[in-house]
Amino acid sequence: MNIQKIFLLTAIALSSQIIFAENSFTESFKGKPKINANFYVFAADIDGTLSEGNIKYNADQPFSDTLKNLDQVYMGYLDFSKGDWGIYIDKQLVKTSKDESIYNIPLALETKLDQTSYGIYYQAYKSPTENSLKRPKLIFEPTIGIHHTEAEATVAALGLTKKVDINWNEFFWGARLRYNFDSPWNLASEVTVGAENTLSAHTYIGYNIPVFKRIINLRAGYRYFHQDYTSGNFRWDITEKGPVIGFNVPIF
């Protein structure tokens, strides 16, 4: 199935929920606004290639090496919702630098990877609220958005320096699923597909802890992210995968 057909089916699914819902479109926004912040660490192993013209760099780096060469890192997720609708920003910024020798030739490498997703979702299905939980057990949310990637790499050897600096945007769509057990435990997962052959999938198990009348959700899981982007002589073919840990805090 090609991209256009998938996008059309996603659009139809979103539209049908609005048109045939018991409540009108305006009423789907009823409810108190909510903001949630999620901070996490993605312990990713990185595999793939970064190339421009005849210069090619093979990326095969476990998370332990990334941590050793880490200069700066930020990973966070901000979610704003009202009624059945929500918007979110998911940002990862990682900067590394290292000095090594290959065949006795000194080599310096600096990298910066900024990946930011801007999305919107709709609660297409919510199971009836259980009295013991005071929240739906099962929630299904189609989502669409824009994924922005900014990649920089600088390689210096033998007095020569080569810098690659490129950024691009791509449309993505997919779905999110949440399940609340009859206990503090919960599950969450998301799968999205990008127009530039990007695939993102992650799943978490969480545990709710009451802190000062707020519910803090501690989360642990696994994340897979693959991009294969080509523009002219530039190609970015990178896979990131590994465990994720973090916590979610309701701001209000």
Score class of each variant (00 low, 15 high):
Ile3Ser: 10
Gln4Ser: 15
Gln4Gly: 13
Lys5Ala: 15
Ile6Cys: 11
Leu8Thr: 10
Leu8Val: 11
Leu9Gln: 14
Thr10Val: 13
Ser16Ile: 11
Phe20Trp: 09
Glu22Pro: 00
Ser24Tyr: 10
Glu27His: 06
Glu27Gly: 04
Lys30Tyr: 07
Gly31Tyr: 00
Lys32Gly: 10
Asn36Val: 11
Phe39Cys: 04
Ala44Phe: 03
Ile46His: 08
Asp47Asn: 14
Gly48His: 08
Leu50Phe: 06
Ser51Phe: 01
Ser51Ala: 14
Gly53Ile: 06
Gly53Cys: 05
Pro62Phe: 00
Ser64Pro: 01
Asp65Ile: 00
Thr66Asp: 07
Thr66Ala: 10
Leu67Val: 03
Leu67Gly: 01
Leu70Asn: 06
Asp71Glu: 12
Gln72Ile: 05
Tyr74Thr: 11
Met75Ser: 11
Tyr77Gly: 04
Asp79Ala: 04
Phe80His: 05
Ser81Cys: 05
Lys82Ile: 08
Gly86Ser: 04
Asp90Arg: 06
Lys91Thr: 13
Lys91Ser: 12
Lys95Ile: 07
Ile102Met: 11
Asn104Met: 14
Ile105Cys: 00
Leu107Lys: 07
Leu109Gln: 06
Glu110Thr: 12
Lys112Phe: 01
Asp114His: 05
Thr116Ser: 05
Thr116His: 03
Ser117Trp: 00
Ile120Thr: 14
Tyr122Cys: 11
Gln123Trp: 08
Gln123Pro: 04
Ala124His: 07
Pro128Ala: 02
Asn131Cys: 09
Leu138Cys: 00
Thr143Met: 07
Ile144Thr: 09
Gly145Phe: 00
His147Ser: 15
Thr149Asn: 14
Thr149Tyr: 14
Glu150Gly: 15
Ala151Met: 14
Ala157Trp: 02
Gly159Arg: 13
Thr161Leu: 14
Thr161Ser: 15
Ile166Met: 15
Asn167Gln: 13
Ala175Trp: 02
Ala175Leu: 12
Leu177Asn: 01
Arg178Leu: 11
Asn180Ile: 04
Asp182Ala: 09
Pro184Met: 07
Asn186Thr: 02
Asn186Tyr: 01
Leu187His: 04
Glu190Leu: 05
Ala195Trp: 01
Asn197Ser: 14
Thr198Phe: 03
Thr198Gln: 07
Leu199Glu: 00
Ala201Val: 14
Tyr204Asp: 10
Pro210Arg: 11
Val211Asn: 09
Ile216Arg: 03
Leu218His: 06
Arg223Gln: 10
Arg223Met: 07
Tyr224His: 05
Gln227Phe: 10
Gly232Gln: 07
Arg235Glu: 15
Arg235Ser: 15
Lys241Cys: 01
Gly242His: 05
Pro243Gly: 08
Val244Cys: 01
Val244Ser: 01
Asn248Gly: 13
Asn248Glu: 15
Val249Glu: 04
Phe252Asn: 03
Phe252Val: 09
